[in-house]
């Protein structure tokens, strides 16, 4: 097999797992299995997707500078999570994905989730937070070019990201508690989470609005001066 095709295949697999396989497994678990097994199955999928990404990242030869910068951004969003009500976590993850690539975005997002939960409480929701934040960062990395070009798109992405995070986490909450996906419970969960969803959306937009430009400048400077 030629190296290019090999590379393509690897990329296809990498894209397939988070976007097709993982949700597919969840859907399969919900429709086919009975009782509560899919809570466990979806948990397995979340953990395995995160693990897959982590190992994928490890294969690539990453320079120490890039590695440090991603860790720095992760630490910044952990520190940011201590800010009351307005959380810059998603915004920072999105910016990491945009400027440092999809994988970095995924790692920054998922590591922020697992590490900040040492302060905010670990639980079975941890893998799902890792997956949701990771995917938001990953997606921002794939959409990097259009997002960098248009601020409007960036804000729209921020709004969607905020809502999406809430929607994903509520699916998990309902499935975990009820053992079955119940649309009534889901709607109730969504409604009760409205204040949170609003705060996610608002903080995403505010922080993206404030940080997008200076962040771009700072990371561009890093790129020119230190070749990151």
């Amino acid at each position: 097999m030629k190296p290019i095709r090999n590379e393509k295949l690897r990329r296809t697999v990498r894209y397939l797992v988070p976007f097709v396989l993982a949700p597919g497994f969840v859907a399969l678990g919900i429709t086919v299995f009975h009782e509560k097994r899919y809570a466990f199955i979806s948990l397995c999928i979340a953990v395995s997707a995160v693990a897959l990404f982590a190992t994928g990242f490890d294969k690539k030869r990453t320079g120490s500078r890039r590695l440090v910068i991603v860790s720095v951004l992760t630490a910044l969003s952990i520190v940011g999570r201590f800010i009351p009500i307005f959380k810059p976590v998603t915004a920072l993850t999105v910016l990491t994905g945009m400027y440092l690539g999809a994988e970095s975005g995924f790692l920054a997002g998922s590591l922020t989730a697992v590490l900040s939960n040492f302060y905010f409480g670990q639980g079975p929701w941890t893998p799902f937070q890792m997956l949701s934040w990771g995917l938001l960062g990953f997606l921002a990395g794939i959409l990097a070019e259009p997002l960098k070009r248009s601020r409007v798109l960036l804000f729209i992405y921020g709004i969607i990201a905020g809502a999406l995070y809430s929607f994903i986490m509520d699916v998990w909450t309902v499935v975990w508690y009820n053992g079955d996906f119940s649309i009534k419970l889901y709607l109730a969960a969504l409604v009760s989470a409205i204040p949170y969803t609003v705060s996610y959306v608002v903080s995403n937009v505010v922080f993206l609005w404030v940080f997008a430009k200076p962040f771009g400048e700072k990371l561009t400077r890093m790129h020119i001066k230190y070749g990151i």
Binding site: A54, D58, V70, V72, T74, A75, L76, I78, L111, L115
Partner: peptide
Amino acid sequence: LSPKPALMISMALRFV
């Protein structure tokens, strides 16, 4: 599982 994210965790914990 994989050394690189492990190192990143250690660094992030150092930075926080």
